[in-house]
Write a protein that binds this DNA or RNA. Structure first.
Lengths: 316, 316
DNA sequence: ACCTATTATGCTCACCATGAGCATTTATGA
DNA sequence: TCATAAATGCTCATGGTGAGCATAATAGGT
């Protein structure tokens, strides 16, 4: 059965981009409409691949050269159709990493970039337990749990909340799962698509909302990036050519949303052979001057190898 | 900028499925057309999500209940368009795991299922170095390396071959990368889409070919599954309700394509608390009878947690 | 010229996961 | 009864990882 070529249907394809840069030690995403939309546009069929199409589109519209690009997910939920005409929309989302200068012009922040923790304040554990978790998220989740009349449902809700939001075993990779749990609990109602974003009458919405399902796409991108920095040297796509190990650690902490052990971080970095000294030092931030390093691009090829979790056997 | 609703374009959306089952200790995929096609069909817009649409489609057409389902990738290369009409095709592929009985009816194999190693013979290291690697793949790759006139290109080719195909550091996860390298080297020319599959005049084609880019999609599925079994208990979706640890090991070995250390495998399984004894034993295969186990489905929830590779710091 | 605060850097230690292999148990079949 | 086969139990060496002590090299104040 060859691919079907019959019955043309009114389907629109849209590309969405989660463009990430590190500005002022904060992970920021490029947005439109005062932060309520991710860059997105119609799919134009005149590019050899989706990826080059997206790259061209982004660079044309934002004047930001794109470094690393990776496909995130393809969404085609029916709820998206209702948001516009009756037409079905299939949206293909991408994650892109780019380099941004620290503050430009008159010290003002370029309008399009927003810290991603604006949308997910409970995901930032760099300064300890985030305030919004204890003050907003958990109380409302508890209310949601108790709202279930069926005891089995209540137990299930309690367990899922426990797994995804427990402080003791916080897993920074579960960004998407946590968002979807909050969505199910009705705490991020903008994802439905129809409600005006800044409605003052809206119930307890946690974190800044976005139009359509763009916040879910953003959550997907953050989750993917957080998972990826653990086994692929992608942080360097966000760093300037030369950097200190301290700056590198701040970058990883910003992405992962949690503090790292400094000495162990350097041990990890240099035993992996990811960087080499430039010879220069930087005396930026008080204290002893730090050596400057640069990323060893050569290892991008070598590093195809990742660790395994299976009990191997070489002899047979 | 809201999603574009103008300019309807002739775009067709197609779903592809990599359906995997374990039959006779072999990883098998459901195919059509004598193994030359993956199950695929047009996207029908009357399902709430792509996933439920695919699930319904597969179950209706194959009568196989689908267990685990996961989106693989969305392809929209221009080369696909040329394969049919001039129409642009966007294909969304899924990985699905299902349970199959061991041999049915009169001992014959159901026609649709094919061992995936038929398409990727160099990926099966269970019995030591696969014959096709030394006999076919490596010689032709070496020829491809030497065919480069530019010495820089030759060095680059040599390095990439070394990384992906080195016996000493074989990484079973790199199925897709290896396939794409072979494709680039012109050793799997069917992926172009136009050449008839069984052309006897075709140059050295390695492994069984498929139409269009279905072999690439299959490689994507295998790679994803091999990576996933290392940190998620998905093997159990392919196992019968009760099984011995020996059978479980054979299943993982079949998927990973390499032998595992038996004692360490059991240690890994039970220290993870993945299974529990049923109390019964099985005296199937000579030797001492083996205890029967069943998967502890409860842990599917708990197991949201995965390991981290970052040097954490809890104190601050 | 000291003293202190601050960051960078070097090093040690305990613990655990993992690869490897020896040994024992319990079945079948010659 | 003995050989063979598979399951199961256990030990050992190694390396990665979390944690923290100690030292080095700056700036700024007194």
């Amino acid at each position: 059965m060859p691919p079907a070529a019959n019955r043309p249907r009114p389907i629109a394809i849209e590309l969405n981009a989660v463009l990430v840069a590190l500005i002022d030690e904060e992970p920021q995403v490029l947005t439109l409409e005062e932060g309520a939309l991710l860059p997105s546009g119609p799919f134009e069929g005149d590019h050899p691949t989706l990826q080059t199409g997206l790259r061209a589109w982004v660079e044309r519209h934002t004047h930001h050269p794109l470094g690393y690009v990776e496909q995130l997910y393809t969404f085609a939920d029916r709820s998206r159709a209702a948001a516009t005409s009756g037409r079905r929309i299939v949206s293909i989302s991408y994650l892109g990493l780019t380099r941004e200068l620290t503050r430009e012009g008159a010290g003002g922040r370029e309008p399009g970039w927003q810290s991603w923790y604006r949308y997910f304040p409970w995901e930032d554990w760099r300064g300890g337990t985030p305030a919004s978790l204890a003050r907003q998220v958990m109380p409302r989740l508890r209310r949601w749990i108790d709202a279930a009349t069926n005891p089995a449902v209540r137990r299930s809700r309690r367990q899922r909340v426990e797994i995804n939001f427990a402080e003791a075993s916080w897993n920074e990779d579960l960004v998407l799962q946590r968002y979807e749990l909050l969505y199910e609990a009705g705490l991020v109602p903008e994802a439905g698509g129809r409600r005006p974003v800044a409605d003052p009458l809206a119930p307890a919405v946690i974190g800044a909302p976005m139009h359509y399902d763009h916040r879910r796409i953003l959550a997907t991108g953050i989750a993917r990036l957080r998972a990826k920095i653990k086994y692929r040297p992608v942080v360097f796509e966000l760093m300037p050519p030369d950097f200190t190990l301290g700056q590198l650690q701040l970058a990883v902490e910003a992405l992962a949303g949690r503090p790292l052990h400094k000495q162990n971080f350097r041990r990890l970095i240099d035993q992996q052979g990811l960087v080499e000294e430039t010879g220069a030092v930087s005396a930026e931030t008080g204290g002893r001057p730090a050596k400057l390093y640069r990323f060893r691009r050569e290892i991008l090829l070598e590093r195809a190898v990742a660790g395994t979790k299976l009990p191997l056997s070489r002899t047979s």
